[in-house]
Design a protein around this nucleic acid. Structure first.
Lengths: 357, 357
DNA sequence: TTGTAAGCGTTATCAC
DNA sequence: GTGATAACGCTTACAA
């Protein structure tokens, strides 16, 4: 069933049906009603491909996600959900493209077959070939994250550097002098993963400015790695009394390692960082942390993208978000001495009641 | 740039370019080469909308996911990733549609604007209006999960009933006589959520057949609820020595509650169920569980969908998967006596969900 | 082996 | 206020 069928049944021309639907030119109330009733009766909806072809736009946006092989973190998944919701609100559809490698067929279809009106590009690297590709294809896009230096690009990002800086500062205010940063994996950071680099940058700045002792841990994105990392840290640098992290997937492991060492949060050890709010709330005790504002980021990115699509000549905009650090219960005053002294030896299964609640 | 431009530059007709690209009729090697070089030079790709309009298919499939508001579980997210990967392998794109309510604009676009060639429908309810809508629209689709009774529908599902049955049986073999099922939330089960009902069914069957004492817990999908549920259970029914679950999101809370009660897994308490393998591996100790085969389910669903699209008259197929239960370290022989004796005195509370007998 | 031309279902520009 | 009709860019009979 097509627009011609509707036109015939309503006794009008195809263009009138089209106009009645789009409202792009006045149609008498009588015929509009008649057309509408035929449409309702037959359940007609215009064919999206034909419309896209004629209009020159698809009412669809592309969302480029990391490939599923590299398992997505909660933060990323929250974001995908938020984008889909934001798009739905704007009556836009979302085409998903997994892409990380460079010669990616799905990504190529997206940029060069006019399947979408614009793209949201997740997980931007400091140097990112996909950015060049999108620009070359004149495809409107907004990055989530930003490259090392690209003032002409639209992006939305979280101010990891500033946030981690503030986290460390908060810890220092509580008296901690020896602080660690639990970063993402060595591979990711080596590949130019922005948040990793910027967290490091904020950490180093804080450590330098405040005259602290700083240790950076590069840690894989899962509980096992987190546990190993922290076990190693406690063994090698028992003076450390606090940790800031951007590696939420490692958090369960962090918790276990601290617990097995008999350390109670926040009495013996403080923990903070940047994580999805769900993780912060689910942690035991709830985590003092900057909650990733996925919803807002998605909404902002979507709004930006819609603007660029409407006017591709717009000057670039960058949105650097600094969500407030929610004070929960995982940070506290530094213990009097290093806990190397007070740490019980060889008693791994002590139940921890879990701080202040 | 379009196919006409390529044709002109290569000195051939538009159809020849089309045929050279599709291979739908022989083209002399010489002209093929010439055309290809022009295409490479200009980076031409055919317009997807035009092609879809002419061919009558979009080379895109729809994936209907639960709305982001109801936060997706890891199992679901794994599955989304797997579907996208499976689709990419078949050179298909994936259009995402969040849908749970009934009058959903995004879902309506999917089914009635010919945006996609077929649909994968997640989280089927025992009675599901979307199934009727898809069928009415003659849209090929495969369900993940299956309604109460619908032999004509294509679906792929996990045999929750059988799997939970085997889990309980395994626990019984280890000597456990008083076993609980940690189900999903009361709301979800009340809404006719299939896995919840079928897990219950398998649980009841095992309990009845084996003459066990069974307790069902309906528990929200997060750590906090898990913790409360288990705390209540231990307080109200201290005889329970083992638990089977399909609620992976509650797992961290389960762990904490057991720990706070001073119970060691698997010495004092055994744990098993159906979860994403990632959770099973990340658990402490690693969980003996049936690992959700997301990749295989996605691949199977995609294969099925491709078949239906090719031949809509195909007789329905149902794939009920029974992944093996991976023996890890969370189940062990039942403790000699009830651990009621060694449990620290807690506040007396009723277990949520109530007993079965 | 190649070219011509008729669709595919819309939108939008003309007329009237 | 409404109706023809020409795009939009492609595929695919039908001819040659």
């Amino acid at each position: 069933m097509n627009i011609g069928e509707i036109a015939r049944r309503a006794g009008v021309s195809r263009s009138t049906v089209s106009y009645a639907l789009s409202g792009n030119r006045p149609v008498s109330e009588a015929t509009r009603k008649r057309i509408q009733s035929v449409i309702d009766e037959l359940g007609y909806r215009p064919n999206a491909s034909a419309r896209a072809l004629a209009e020159g736009r698809t009412r669809t946006i592309g969302l480029v996600i990391p490939p599923a092989s590299s398992r997505l973190t909660h933060m990323q998944l929250d974001f995908v959900g938020s984008v889909v919701d934001a798009a739905a609100k704007a009556d836009l559809d979302v085409l998903l493209s997994p892409s990380g490698g460079d010669h990616d067929r799905s990504f190529e279809r997206l940029v060069s077959e006019s399947r979408v009106d614009g793209v949201i590009l997740m997980e931007i690297r400091m140097e990112d070939a996909r950015v060049d590709r999108l620009r070359e294809a004149r495809m409107p896009f907004v990055g989530i994250g930003h490259p090392a230096n690209d003032p002409g690009m639209f992006w939305v990002d979280v101010d990891y550097a500033g946030l981690i800086y503030h986290c460390v500062r908060h810890l220092a205010d509580l008296g901690h002098r020896d602080i660690a940063l639990l970063n993402r994996s060595p591979e990711l950071v080596a590949a130019g993963y922005g948040p990793g680099h910027r967290a490091r940058e904020g950490f180093m700045r804080a450590v330098t400015e405040l005259g602290l002792q700083g240790t950076e841990l590069l840690c894989g994105d899962d509980a096992r790695c987190g546990q190993e990392c922290i076990a190693d840290l406690l063994a090698g640098r028992p003076e450390v009394t606090a940790l800031a992290t951007i590696n939420e997937a490692a958090l369960p492991g962090v918790q276990r390692a601290l617990q097995e060492a008999g350390l109670v949060i926040p009495r013996d050890f403080s923990l903070t960082g940047v994580v999805a709010s769900q993780w912060a709330e689910d942690f035991r005790p709830p985590l003092t942390a900057a909650d990733m504002p996925s919803d807002q980021m998605a909404a902002q990115a979507m709004a930006l993208l819609v603007e660029i699509i409407r006017d591709p000549s717009m000057p670039a905009q960058h949105i650097l978000m600094s969500p407030p650090i929610s004070l929960r219960h995982s940070t506290g005053a530094a213990p009097a001495g290093s806990h190397a002294a007070i740490r019980p030896v060889g008693q791994p299964q002590q139940p921890t009641g879990g701080g202040l609640s």
